[in-house]
């Protein structure tokens, strides 16, 4: 839409060097024509873009980076009212505020919200209910693009096939599966790193706990000898050392869980950011493709930045269980071995 033809709005974007060249060329042509036809030069103006939508929650089909309502409110997705959201720059350029009226295709449109779209072009555009824009532009039931979002990356192919079967050659279907896969590569990397880290830390933790417990028990051989000499049974000695190591392990586990919960998100952010930068340098198929029918996950890369680590209860319980089992084995076995030896031998060895 341009101002002079279909709307009362003036674009908030300057023509720039391209526009000035166009303006200059048009001026020359018109001057030449003017010489012939006595016509005045016509000023070049940037068009005002209006996007019709029935889903304000998905920003990928609105030509905006983000949709932040700075004043007013969003319209109902299925609204049949002549209303619009306008970008902050467009509102400033045309002195519009909430409740202001402007014209589109000769009809009055009421401003009910002003948004920040995250970039210059988005802030110079308008968003209207799809049904209204279709009516005003005499394009009932027609759309330029449809974005289909799937529940899972695994179903993209089947959904793509289903759409192709239904609509045939009427539309071009471009899957974002490749770019979606590219987008989740960092997560796959993190998953691999986390898995190896988990296995590594579990093995290292198990060895450390086992050796520490063995060392503690061995250092207290004399105590075991004395306890046996004054009549303690082997079971009592093993129980005492096991309970001691369990208390130590549980206290350490609680401390570890607290530190884990505190540091899991910062570590995840670092891992994501490192993985993103390493995959970004590799590029990938599907980048920059235009889609008539785009298949979901277009915002996957952005979604990765909002990802949060959640330490689930079952993971905590498994972790504690493993630590407890290792602590029991690490303390019970050496204390039992020492307790089986005659007290005099144990004390003589000191």
């Amino acid at each position: 839409m341009t101002k002079d033809e279909n709307t009362s709005l003036t674009s908030a974007i300057d023509p720039g060097s391209f526009g000035q060249r166009q303006q200059s060329q048009q001026g020359n042509n018109n001057t030449q024509q003017g010489q012939n036809n006595s016509q005045t030069p016509r000023n070049f103006t940037m068009p005002v873009t209006a996007t019709g939508t029935n889903d304000l929650n998905t920003t990928s089909n609105l030509n905006v980076t983000s949709l932040k309502i700075t004043s007013g409110a969003k319209f109902d997705a299925t609204s049949s009212q002549n209303v619009a959201l306008i970008g902050t720059d467009l509102a400033a350029k045309n002195n519009l505020s909430i409740g202001s009226i402007f014209q589109v295709y000769g009809k009055d449109i009421k401003v009910i919200g002003i948004f920040d779209g995250g970039n210059k072009f988005a802030n110079s555009s308008a968003i209207m209910p799809l049904k209204i824009l279709q009516q005003l532009s005499s394009q009932a039931n027609q759309v330029n693009s449809v974005i289909v979002q799937t529940d899972s990356i695994d179903t993209i192919s089947s959904v793509q096939d289903a759409i192709k079967k239904k609509l045939g050659d009427k539309v071009d279907i471009v899957s974002q599966q490749d770019s979606a896969k590219q987008a989740v590569v960092p997560l796959e990397n993190i998953k691999t790193i986390s898995l190896y880290s988990l296995i590594g830390s579990l093995v290292a933790g198990a060895i450390i706990i086992f050796l520490i417990m063995m060392m503690i028990v061995r250092e207290r051989r004399r105590e075991i000898g004395v306890l046996k000499a004054i009549g303690s049974s082997n079971i009592k000695i093993v129980s005492q050392f096991t309970v001691e190591s369990l208390v130590l392990t549980l206290m350490s586990s609680v401390l570890g869980i607290i530190l884990g919960v505190i540091f899991s998100n910062p570590i995840l952010k670092v891992l994501v950011s490192n993985s993103e930068s390493s995959t970004a340098t590799g590029g990938g198929p599907g980048q920059g493709m235009m889609a008539r029918v785009g298949m979901g996950f277009m915002g996957a890369q952005n979604a990765l930045r909002d990802i949060n680590a959640v330490v689930s209860y079952d993971i905590i319980l498994y972790g504690i269980l493993v630590a407890v089992i290792i602590a029991i084995i690490g303390s019970a076995i050496p204390s039992f071995i020492i307790a089986k030896v005659r007290p005099a031998e144990v004390m003589r060895a000191e």
């Binding site: 105590e223 004395v226 046996k228 009549g231 049974s233 082997n234 004390m347």
Partner: peptide
């Protein structure tokens, strides 16, 4: 056997070690 020895040490013997052997 082991269990009888434990009972014997527990009930019949009082032992004062040369180097005390207290639990620290």
């Amino acid at each position: 056997g082991e269990s009888k020895l434990i009972k014997y040490r527990r009930n019949k013997i009082g032992f004062i070690f040369q180097n005390y052997n207290l639990i620290p």
